[in-house]
Structure formats: structure tokens, C-alpha cells
Amino acid sequence: MSDTFSNQNMATLLAALPIPVLLVGGDGRVAATNAMAQALLGSGAALGQPYVSVLRQPALVEAVESTIKDKTLRKARFLVHSDGKEGVYEVHCNPTNALNDGVLVSFLDISDREQASQMRRDFVANVSHELRTPLTSLMGFIETLQGPAKDDAGARMQFLEIMSSEAARMERLVSDLLSLSRVEAEERLPLRDSVALGALLTSVISSLAPRASETAVEIMTDLSEHDLSVRAEADQLRQVFTNLIENAIKYGGAGGKVLVTLSAVEGQPALRGQPGVLVKVKDFGAGIDPLHIPRLTERFYRVDSHRSRQVGGTGLGLAIVKHIVQRHRGRLRIDSDLGKGAEFSVLLPRGDAV
């Protein structure tokens, strides 16, 4: 490649590429670069600068140096930190005949792929942990019943009750895992049914009345705009409000109150200016430290793991709620302060606005 072509057209060629790219000459200096590479590497990625001072990270510097020497394609990782987030790039160091046997260094953003891989690893680890505890408990009780407590009727009944509780816990976990998987699989399917939210909420509250009665919790409602409808899948919305109201009963405290309201809202920015329907579920319990709120919808995230397990929580309920609300083109908002209870708001597009 001639120097004339290099000088006049190299920058144009690199600018046309959709990823950060820079060309390192055989003399070890930056010979050409594009705007994306400059944005990624900073103002130091100027023409004529030594690549060592531009790339900085040892693994990448070594890969470029080795490619200059032996003309062999190499790959390396490049990590960046911005706004508290970590980005990961897969960097290809390609030998080229341009500019005295230089190296074309291209950066492929694999942050999403790395994040997805980490999420899968975390998910498997969390599921394994959640199942291991009840399984270990069951195996221990079975061994005891087969051995020392074989002829102890009192111990046998006590152990069987605990084993039943642990088995039920595993059943809830598996059920929630299957539900989450199903919701994620259906996230892009169209919504065809019109659902009257007032009737749906009344039905959900009626089904949870025995649970509320057990802990002397009063469920108050304001469903005056009873006829509001949304385009939705009724079973999934039932799951959303069952989860939220049941959580309010569990965590609002015995003898407390839960308030469920339904109202119409206009011109919502979150719905691109469309009219919407707002359902709020509020308890008046201990509340949630605002520090935890951004992570509440993560799988297996719990503010109080011990208490959550005591009341039968799997750590997946709010993750399921989030995915269902997203499928319905809606928004979930959580507001809470310690000592002032918690309020969960579900905003959905009204009627045919979905």
C-alpha cells in the first residue's frame, strides 16, 4: 500500500467501520484511528503517539508487540470503567502490510455477552444454593428416621412435618422458576385480550382474604374506576397482583393494613404520552431501605433472606412481576422508606394503547 493512499484514505476507511479501530505502524506509533477509538481510548489516542501509552493495559500491549514481531493474529481483552460500570472488549490484533508491517487493532464490545454469561453463572449458583439447603435437611431427616428415630413415633411426626415444609419450599421454588422461564419465553408475544382490571383485582383480593385473615391484616380498596380495561393476558396480570398483594400481607406486619387502588392517568411520559391505568399496592409495615430498591427485582435478591424464607419467599416473585409488566409495555415503580411501609405501583397502557 502506497504512502499516498495511506495518508489520504486510511482515516476515511477506518471512519467507515462500525467499531473502534486504530492502525499501529511498524514503528510502534499510532498511524490512523477513527472517532470511536478516540472516544474509547481518550484524547491520548492521537496520531503519532506510541501505542504503549495509548493502549496502556499490559495484556493488549503485549499482544500488539508480539503481532508486530511475528505477523501472527492475536486476541486480547480490554477493560474499561465508565459511570461505575465495567465494559469488556475483545480486541483483534491483525497484521497488515500497511505502514511497514503494522497492526490493525479492532475493538469488539462483548459487555452484553459477558454480562449474560455472568448472569447464567449466578443463576445456576443461586438455584443450587436454594435447593441444596432443603435437600440437605431432607436427607438428614431421612437418615435419622431410618436410624436413631426409627421407632420414635413422636420424633417421626415432628420430622415429617419439617420434611413436608422443606418439600413445599422446593416445590414453590421450582414452580416460580418454571413461571419465570415461561414469562421470559412469552415476553414478545402479542396481547390479544381485553381485561377489566377492577374485576380482576376484586377476584385476587377475594382469593387472598383467608391469608389476610390469618394474620388479621385488613385489605382496603379504592376501585371506584372499576371499568378500566387493558389489553393483557389475564392469568399473567392475576399473577402480578397476587404476588404484590400477598407480599404486602406478608411483610406489612400482623394486624396491619394493605391499600389497593385503581385509577386512570393521562399523558404518561413512561407510556410515551399515552393514557394509562395505575394500580397501587401499599402496606404500612417496616418499609424497605431505599438502598435495596434498585435491586429488588433481581432474581433471588432478598432484603432479609431469613425472614423471606420464613414466610415462604423464593426470591423470584418480583423478578416475575417485572417481566410480566414489561411484556405488557408497562412500568413497575417501588417507593419506600424505613418505618413508613412500601408502595408498589404498576402502570399499564389503557385499552387499545398497548
Rank of each mutant, 00 (worst) to 15 (best):
N100E: 03
H81M: 12
G84S: 04
V91Y: 11
L108E: 03
E90Y: 03
V88P: 01
I110T: 01
V88N: 08
K75M: 15
K71P: 00
K71C: 05
H81Q: 13
A76S: 11
V105S: 08
F107A: 02
F107Y: 04
I110E: 00
E90S: 14
G87F: 09
D83A: 01
N100V: 00
E90C: 08
D109L: 03
F78M: 08
T72C: 04
A76G: 12
L73M: 04
C93M: 02
P95F: 05
L99G: 02
P95D: 08
D109P: 03
G87P: 02
H92P: 01
C93P: 02
H92G: 06
N97G: 15
F107I: 09
R77I: 06
S82P: 03
V91S: 01
G102V: 03
L79H: 07
L99I: 00
A98M: 14
R77M: 06
V80G: 12
N94F: 15
R74G: 10
E86V: 09
A98T: 08
V91H: 09
F78E: 05
L104D: 02
S106C: 03
L73E: 14
V88M: 05
N97W: 13
I110R: 00
V80M: 06
L104S: 06
S106T: 11
N94K: 15
F78C: 13
A98V: 09
S106L: 07
A98E: 08
I110A: 02
V91F: 10
T72V: 10
R77W: 14
E90L: 05
V103G: 00
T96N: 14
L108Q: 05
P95Y: 07
D83Y: 00
P95S: 10
V103H: 01
C93E: 04
V88K: 03
V103K: 07
G102R: 01
L99A: 05
K85L: 01
F107W: 12
L73G: 06
G102I: 00
R74H: 12
E86L: 11
A76F: 12
V103C: 01
V80C: 11
V88R: 04
L79Q: 14
L99N: 02
N97C: 12
F107D: 10
S106G: 11
L99H: 01
V88H: 09
D101V: 00
K75W: 08
T72R: 03
R74V: 05
C93Q: 03
D101S: 13
F107G: 08
A76K: 12
K71S: 07
L108K: 06
A76C: 13
F78P: 05
H92I: 09
V91M: 07
H81A: 13
F107P: 11
V105W: 09
P95Q: 12
F78W: 10
